[in-house]
Simulated scan of single mutants.
Amino acid sequence: MKILVTVKSVVDYNVKIRVKPDGSGVDLAGVKHSMNPFDEISVEEAIRLRDAGVATEIVVVSIGGGKSEEALRSALAMGADRAILIETTDTVEPLGVAKLVKQVADDEQPGMIIVGKQAIDDDSAQTGQMISALLNWPQATFASKIQIGAGKASVTREVDGGLQTIEVDLPAVVTTDLRLNEPRYASLPNIMKAKKKPMSRKSPSDFDVDLSPRLTVVKTEEPMPRPGGIKVASVAELIAKLKTEAHIL
């Protein structure tokens, strides 16, 4: 079974985000990027499925420019077999991403698509669901455990009431949650080998999809600074402040 994994390059989670002075968006100039953490989990899970004999090939796909190529190289260094880069400098919204991935899936015919449940830059958390709808495939979202057998995927999900296990027929789209696994670090030899692994390059114009933007950013601003905490001498003083200052009692 072939597994297709989506990968996105995002601002590194250790970087403090800066908003542009005109409020039009986030300042990305000279900012360190890395693979989206949920996508690292997706790649790791695909590798584990291959090591278990469930999968035979792992193909990673990303949409963007040079930063996206770096994310793909990181995925190849982790252990993916080959990569597909859809090169563009334009911002592609989640629906556009889903349309492009759907076209790639039509060409590659994977048995499963693994998608990070969300990207830490826009937090849309909808691309996997959109891919599933466009392909008319079953979906299992927010997976914390995946088991494959007899043409089906058994996926355990974390829900408000505890754990929920669902079973879907393959091919299917699965989105990954944080506790699914712990991604491995790429070793130096694997990083060097990744430079020789195949990476095909495509353009959005190679696909018959409409990528017209549907969303407009009205304004971007930093959150209000949180006020410092205070200490109270007694429960009575705490209740009084909750009533008179916080107005929550």
Results as ranks from 00 to 15, higher is better:
residue 241 K to G: 00
residue 183 P to A: 11
residue 234 S to C: 11
residue 223 P to Y: 14
residue 215 L to A: 10
residue 178 L to E: 15
residue 177 D to N: 13
residue 156 T to Q: 04
residue 217 V to S: 04
residue 173 V to P: 01
residue 219 K to D: 08
residue 174 V to C: 06
residue 184 R to Y: 02
residue 197 K to N: 07
residue 197 K to R: 11
residue 225 P to L: 15
residue 245 E to I: 07
residue 178 L to S: 15
residue 179 R to W: 13
residue 215 L to C: 00
residue 163 L to V: 05
residue 168 V to R: 00
residue 181 N to T: 06
residue 158 E to H: 00
residue 154 S to Q: 10
residue 211 L to S: 01
residue 215 L to Y: 03
residue 163 L to T: 10
residue 195 K to V: 06
residue 183 P to R: 02
residue 212 S to I: 12
residue 173 V to S: 05
residue 219 K to I: 11
residue 239 I to S: 04
residue 163 L to P: 01
residue 169 D to S: 15
residue 213 P to D: 07
residue 181 N to S: 12
residue 209 V to N: 06
residue 244 T to V: 10
residue 207 F to L: 03
residue 242 L to I: 09
residue 168 V to M: 03
residue 177 D to A: 13
residue 198 P to G: 02
residue 198 P to T: 04
residue 166 I to F: 04
residue 189 P to Y: 04
residue 171 P to Q: 13
residue 184 R to V: 09
residue 166 I to V: 14
residue 230 I to A: 08
residue 201 R to I: 12
residue 221 E to W: 10
residue 225 P to Q: 14
residue 236 A to Q: 14
residue 172 A to H: 01
residue 214 R to D: 02
residue 219 K to Q: 11
residue 242 L to G: 00
residue 175 T to N: 06
residue 193 K to T: 05
residue 218 V to P: 00
residue 242 L to Q: 03
residue 172 A to L: 06
residue 169 D to L: 13
residue 216 T to W: 07
residue 223 P to A: 14
residue 236 A to W: 04
residue 205 S to E: 14
residue 190 N to D: 08
residue 180 L to A: 10
residue 224 M to V: 15
residue 239 I to L: 13
residue 233 A to E: 14
residue 174 V to Y: 02
residue 229 G to F: 07
residue 204 P to K: 05
residue 158 E to D: 06
residue 238 L to S: 04
residue 163 L to Q: 09
residue 192 M to F: 01
residue 182 E to F: 14
residue 165 T to F: 05
residue 245 E to D: 08
residue 201 R to L: 10
residue 208 D to V: 09
residue 162 G to H: 12
residue 226 R to K: 15
residue 185 Y to V: 14
residue 227 P to V: 10
residue 190 N to F: 03
residue 216 T to V: 14
residue 191 I to W: 02
residue 177 D to Q: 15
residue 226 R to T: 13
residue 232 V to E: 03
residue 212 S to K: 13
residue 172 A to Q: 03
residue 205 S to I: 07
residue 240 A to F: 01
residue 193 K to P: 00
residue 243 K to A: 11
residue 232 V to Q: 03
residue 181 N to D: 11
residue 182 E to S: 15
residue 174 V to D: 02
residue 159 V to E: 07
residue 184 R to G: 03
residue 192 M to P: 02
residue 217 V to T: 15
residue 222 E to T: 15
residue 186 A to V: 01
residue 182 E to M: 15
residue 189 P to M: 09
residue 231 K to A: 08
residue 242 L to M: 09
residue 164 Q to N: 13
residue 228 G to W: 08
residue 168 V to A: 02
residue 188 L to K: 01
residue 247 H to E: 14
